[in-house]
Design a protein around this nucleic acid. Structure first.
Lengths: 162, 162
DNA sequence: TGACAATATCAGCCTAGGCAACTATTATCC
DNA sequence: GGATAATAGTTGCCTAGGCTGATATTGTCA
């Protein structure tokens, strides 16, 4: 049943996986650059990863640290330290949940909320720049294809015979 | 001129960039898992990044370290250490070039060459698993769209006004 | 030729993610 | 209710990439 790549023609360095990696690296670098160059944001020394967390909190409130980890498949220990940094920069706040005292609810501070629109604008600019020349239909199709790849992750792995 | 995302509807966490990151993380994790589970390769403790280097060397010979860095936008210092590891595992060999003594020519050892087909097979399996349900036309289109995003990297950045 | 720039590699320092062990808290099940 | 499992968060240790500066070598150009 329709395998996409076959053993005779498969070139790992030119496959979709390699392309994905290169595009992602380029996009992250571009966003890091924008964040470092922006007048208001430069002093915060934000990384693309930190923006990702802030964007999650800007969308919905009442998120816990583990929610974030699941959302972006991030290590829990690394998340603790990233939240330390964001808290140190005054962008987020931690509140131990009274209902379930294991949980830490996270929310943006006023400053975090005030700066977020600018970060979002930079992120949007990077995305649009990489999608230059795309029709909206092509962009939507790309989203759809990537989403389908992600869904395939859920399936149980069928390991190649050793 | 058709921007794909606009300021009112853009959701960073659901954008193509975020999807890219998640798919890539999942693919790398899947390949790491396969490499660790394979009977013959497990002892080498190969990472997906190391496989990427070996795949580059398997394709063309006479590559230098800096060629590899350019190909996958990898830091030169990190590359030196990765080559140290691969050399330590007996998979690659370094030869200082007689023509230009700054260069180090890299090539696979016999063992590296012998083991590469199996690594490639595992990589192929992961790629096909993530593309399950895709038609070949869809896969080719995905490749094409990603390649176009990569081409847009070359363009000079037009920075958003601060 | 000789000064200077460019390139390739390497080594040291810093940062940050992955993993394992630990504590605190809550859920489950007898 | 009480033992046990599961979950959330944290911390320490290890690994590995990014950046800077150093060295060796080659290219450029007056």
């Amino acid at each position: 049943m329709g395998d996409i790549y076959d053993s005779t023609s498969y070139q790992p360095r030119k496959s979709i996986g390699a392309l994905l990696s290169r595009v992602r690296v380029a996009m992250l670098a571009a966003l890091d650059e924008e964040l470092a160059a922006d007048r208001r944001l430069a002093a915060l020394e934000l990384s693309a990863a930190q923006f990702s967390v802030i964007a999650s909190l800007a969308g919905e409130e009442r998120k816990s640290a583990s929610d974030l980890c699941k959302g972006i498949s991030y290590d829990a220990g690394a998340m603790t330290r990233m939240l330390d940094r964001l808290e140190g920069k005054g962008l987020i706040r931690r509140n131990r949940s009274p209902d379930d005292r294991r949980l830490v609810h996270l929310e943006l501070t006023d400053e975090g909320r005030a700066l977020y629109p600018r970060m979002r604008e930079l992120s949007l600019g990077v995305a649009n720049r990489f999608l230059r020349g795309f029709t909206k239909a092509e962009a939507r199709q790309l989203e759809s294809l990537l989403a389908r790849m992600l869904e395939n992750t859920q399936e149980p792995a069928v390991r190649a015979s050793a």
